[in-house]
Design a protein around this nucleic acid. Structure first.
Length: 138
DNA sequence: GCCAACGTTGGC
DNA sequence: GCCAACGTTGGC
């Protein structure tokens, strides 16, 4: 079981949009970055991820689950790009903001801080547990 | 809206 | 294969 973080601009596709998609989830298409693609290739069904709102909010708002492993991106004509499908699992009782992450010494090494522009990032288990706690989850 | 960071492209 | 130019992302 691995943990990940998915970034999205809420204007374009928000946590609420993902929730509305229900159990079948949504194809995480449009990613055109090799590192992000490689992260998606490494994902397994059942892996969990944080859902982060960039630009507006700048906070982790919910937890999602990988529900289909990497497959060709249907919005790509070159055959180079792949994506997974994700679905919403549960919202964070209290969203964890980027400012809080930056203020937390244990999270200094997080990709969210060190590789700010990467849109699909790995999350360490310790980071996962701590942020869940900060977000008011047991 | 600005701009720093960083990934990608293309000329050599 | 190097590196300058360019485009994009995303925090502020």
């Amino acid at each position: 079981m691995a943990y990940w973080l998915f970034k999205s601009e809420p204007d374009v596709f928000s946590w609420e949009d993902l929730r509305k998609k229900g159990k079948s989830g949504e194809e995480w298409d449009g990613v055109r970055n090799y590192q992000a693609r490689n992260n998606m290739r490494a994902m397994k069904v059942g892996d969990l991820g944080f859902f982060y709102h960039s630009n507006e909010g700048k906070e982790i708002v919910g937890i999602c689950e990988v529900c289909a492993e990497a497959h060709p991106d249907s919005t790509d004509g070159t055959g180079k790009w792949e994506c997974v499908d994700i679905r919403a699992v549960e919202p964070m009782p209290r969203p964890v903001t980027l400012a809080e992450v930056k203020d937390t010494p244990e999270l200094k090494e997080m990709s969210l801080v060190t590789s700010m522009r990467l849109s699909v990032q790995p999350v360490r288990e310790e980071e996962w547990k701590l942020i869940r706690k900060m977000g008011g989850m047991g």
